[in-house]
Simulated assay, not measured.
Amino acid sequence: MKITVFSAQSYDRQFLNEANQAEPRPYDVELIYQQATLSLQTAALAQGSEAICVFVNDRLDAPVLEALARLGVRGILLRCAGFNNVDIDTAASLGLFVARVPAYSPEAVAEHTIALIMTLNRHTHRAYNRVREGNFMLDGLLGMTMRGKTVGIVGTGKIGRATARILRGFGCDVLGCDPLPSPEFKRLGDMVDLQPLLEQSDIVTLHCPLVEDNRHMINADSLLLMKAGAMLINTSRGGLIDTNAAISALKTRHLGALGIDVYEQESALFFHDRSSDIIDDDVFQRLMTFPNVLVTGHQGFFTTEAMREISAVTFQNLHCLAEGVPCANAVVGS
């Protein structure tokens, strides 16, 4: 089978090649790596492939899916848990197989969430730069003790629960909010509705998938519900936050700090080296002017263990497609 891998970075090659060689199969798998992001303009790169392998910023709307189907592609393998970038109805109508990696090392994303919280709280990113310049003053680096603080977790799935377990170790009080509450979360914190969670939390962290119903769930109105000076963290999907509303809340000092590993318009920026370019995204550039904003480039998942799990599950999904057997990770198809 020939598989075209879009948005392929060097680490994707490393771990997918490793998984491809891990065990013999009754069929050969040829991986064709393309650094290009999948779009209508790049879909032709999948010519001759039975399946494609894509990531979070690849575009799989109706025109792209129709173009892929015309090329003979019959399977889409997602190297991620979310599938908000896939037009599911169109994929189903075209008879395409779509499968994801539903959970990969939730601890990896949870630990990155904590890294964002602690960096913003204790200003270690600013202290690092100061000390390198010989400035050992502490002014502007005052943080808060985590013990006894209330942290609201929006989304109580595996990542949310992993985050809650770490926060409990800090001595935090944990609140959870989820339209499908996890019974396991009740051992870690109290389940509440979104409004009281926002009103009571010193830190709010988002761990939910992006669907149309929760796009911009953090907006001008919900930000006003938050405590003055509270911290907001997002390691899920950029579309959960109305970035312009967050900027306004930062300008009025109502939002105390913002840490994001995802950004609504990230596809033009993240996973690319733009260090020699002029970045013309004015919203992103405005975000970067705030000393109390920390942005990382969608690296929450990026650990050796998570990459190996993503690659292994991707090949399990491919086996289901090749053999025509039921797939537990299928979003569309058997």
Rank of each mutant, 00 (worst) to 15 (best):
M1G: 13
M1H: 07
V5F: 04
S7T: 14
Y11G: 02
R13I: 12
Q14H: 13
F15K: 03
Q21P: 00
E23V: 11
R25M: 08
D28A: 14
D28H: 09
L31N: 02
L31S: 07
Q35T: 14
Q41F: 11
Q41S: 11
A43M: 02
A44D: 14
L45V: 01
L45G: 09
I52D: 00
V54R: 01
V56N: 05
R59P: 00
A67D: 11
R70Y: 03
L71Q: 15
R74Y: 00
G75N: 01
L78E: 10
R79H: 01
N84D: 15
N85V: 08
N85L: 00
D89S: 10
T90P: 09
L96N: 01
F97A: 02
V98S: 00
A99P: 03
R100G: 04
P102H: 06
P106H: 06
A110W: 03
A110T: 08
E111H: 12
A115W: 15
I117D: 06
N121E: 07
R122D: 05
H123D: 09
H125W: 10
H125R: 10
A127P: 03
A127V: 10
A127Q: 13
Y128R: 12
Y128S: 09
N129M: 12
V131N: 05
L138P: 02
R147H: 14
T150V: 15
V151W: 00
G155S: 05
T156R: 00
G157E: 02
K158G: 05
A162R: 01
A162H: 02
A164V: 07
R165I: 09
I166C: 04
I166G: 04
L167P: 02
G169K: 06
F170N: 10
F170E: 05
C172Y: 04
L175R: 09
G176Y: 01
C177S: 13
P179Q: 08
L180D: 14
E184P: 11
E184D: 15
E184C: 10
K186E: 14
K186P: 03
K186L: 14
R187F: 06
L197P: 12
L198T: 04
D202A: 06
V204T: 12
L206Y: 01
L206K: 01
P209L: 10
P209H: 15
E212W: 13
E212I: 11
D213Y: 12
R215I: 07
A220C: 09
L224V: 10
M226P: 00
G229T: 04
A230I: 11
L232T: 13
I233G: 01
L240N: 03
L240A: 04
I241H: 05
D242H: 09
N244H: 14
A249P: 03
A249R: 05
A257N: 12
L258W: 02
D261V: 11
E264H: 01
S267K: 15
A268C: 11
R274C: 05
S276D: 15
V283W: 08
V283C: 15
L287R: 06
F290E: 06
P291G: 10
V293N: 03
T296V: 12
Q299M: 15
G300Y: 03
G300S: 07
T303Y: 07
T303W: 08
T304V: 15
A306N: 10
I310T: 07
I310S: 01
S311D: 00
F315D: 03
L318D: 00
C320L: 02
L321I: 04
E323T: 14
V325Q: 12
P326Y: 07
N329P: 02
N329W: 02
S334I: 13
